[in-house]
Amino acid sequence: MTMAIGKTSYLHDLKVVFSNRDLIFSLAVKDFKVRYRSATLGFLWMLLNPVLQMLVLSLVFSFIVRIPVDVPYPIFLLCGLLPWNFMSMTLGIGASSLVNERNLVKKLYFPREIIPISVAAGHFINFLIALLLFLPVPLFFLKTWSWALLFLPIPILLLALFTISITSLATLSDAFFRDTRFIVEALLMVWFYATPIFYPYSYLTSLTGVIPRWIMPFVNMIRFNPMAGIISMFRNILLKGEPPRLADGLYVLIITTALLLFSFILYRRHGPIIADHM
């Protein structure tokens, strides 16, 4: 192999990332093991957390503030909460991951995007296990067994790719500007409410005329939130037993592809000098 500066092709760089899948896996497994090994309840926490979260939110939104949904509220909620938790935890933890792993970055060579990808991979294992355990609930209570289940990999894949793209961008930005992690924290807080997680999308349309007029444009912006599209795909499959809407899928696909390409280009350009900023 002959290496020369700045002469590698896009395809070659993509191959390099792909050839490091063993490393992504090793790092993800390491994160997973380190996270749960020293805790007494071990990886049970992975399930306990969403369950607790679901209980609290269900209590609030089905008894105190009533949000009308046509299925049992906890099931409705969990359907949005699982994908959201995967995305928000990956982004929240991933944003500072390059800086946290600065020892590796300063002393070893590997494509830098591996780090955020491995964080996503670690949480993806979490997400898949939680999803598998939760899956029988709507299928059993709502009797939504149908061929639509075959579409389930699509929103899962889109969610994973969207999460990777946005986390990679945040991580890269954080490597150069440490403020990014705080911006991400703030963003995630707003984003949680701007995503139809604890309310159905239709709830927003019912707000017309109820809330002041000047807020409506902001509410309408939720339409462009890719997480809304992803969660709506999950809900269609799991709660209604219908295939996801094509419009949702296409929109998320376009956004995700654009973000992935953008972050790949940025990493190609700035990745090699990240070590200088650690």
Binding site: M1, L108, Y109
Partner: peptide, 24 residues
């Protein structure tokens, strides 16, 4: 690990670096 501003590097073969023991 980092990139130079200018100049050329030609390396034939696989490189392993051990810049600090115990990293990783």
């Amino acid at each position: 690990i980092t990139r130079s501003d200018s100049g050329s590097i030609e390396i034939q073969g696989r490189v392993t670096s051990l810049l600090e023991l115990g990293v990783g």
